[in-house]
Amino acid sequence: AKPPKTVTVKVEVTNADGETQTRTVTLTNLPKDLKPGDTVTLPETGQTARIVEITP
């Protein structure tokens, strides 16, 4: 079996106070056609994050 493909992405997350924070997260099994501006759900927090940058 192939190991899951991990991708490092820079995302913007809005916290409970309405502040936008930029975080770098490593995600696995992202859709192939994901692009900056799309939103993903962070598995560890369940927060919705907007992708700023994808590092191949």
Rank of each mutant, 00 (worst) to 15 (best):
A1S: 13
A1R: 05
A1T: 14
A1P: 13
K2L: 15
K2F: 14
P3K: 08
P3W: 11
P3E: 12
P4E: 12
P4D: 13
P4W: 00
K5R: 14
K5P: 15
K5Y: 15
T6Q: 13
T6F: 10
V7Q: 12
T8Q: 12
T8P: 02
T8C: 09
V9D: 00
V9M: 08
V9Q: 00
V9A: 08
K10Y: 05
K10P: 00
V11F: 06
V11K: 00
V11E: 00
E12C: 06
N15C: 09
A16T: 09
A16V: 09
A16L: 09
D17C: 11
D17P: 03
D17A: 13
D17Q: 12
G18M: 03
G18E: 02
E19V: 14
E19S: 13
E19G: 10
E19N: 12
E19W: 05
E19C: 14
T20Q: 06
Q21C: 11
Q21F: 08
Q21H: 13
T22R: 08
T22K: 05
T22W: 05
R23T: 10
R23S: 10
R23W: 08
T24Q: 04
V25H: 02
V25M: 03
T26W: 02
T26E: 15
T26Y: 04
T26N: 13
T26S: 11
T26V: 13
T26Q: 12
T28A: 12
N29A: 06
N29W: 06
N29C: 08
L30F: 14
L30Y: 15
P31I: 11
P31M: 13
K32R: 05
D33Y: 08
D33C: 11
D33T: 09
D33G: 11
D33P: 06
D33L: 08
L34F: 08
L34C: 07
L34W: 11
K35I: 06
K35C: 07
K35D: 02
K35N: 08
P36I: 15
P36L: 13
G37H: 02
G37D: 03
G37P: 00
G37R: 01
D38R: 02
T39D: 05
T39S: 08
T39R: 06
T39K: 09
T39A: 06
T39C: 08
V40P: 00
V40T: 03
T41F: 11
L42P: 00
L42K: 00
L42D: 06
L42C: 07
P43T: 08
P43K: 06
P43Q: 07
E44S: 08
E44I: 10
E44V: 09
T45W: 07
T45M: 04
G46N: 07
G46H: 06
G46M: 06
G46A: 05
G46D: 05
Q47V: 09
Q47Y: 02
T48P: 11
T48L: 13
T48H: 09
T48E: 10
T48G: 04
A49F: 01
A49L: 02
A49T: 02
R50D: 01
R50C: 04
R50P: 01
I51L: 05
I51W: 00
I51F: 05
V52P: 00
V52A: 03
E53L: 04
E53Q: 09
E53M: 05
E53G: 07
E53A: 10
I54V: 09
I54Q: 02
T55I: 15
T55E: 12
P56C: 10
P56S: 13
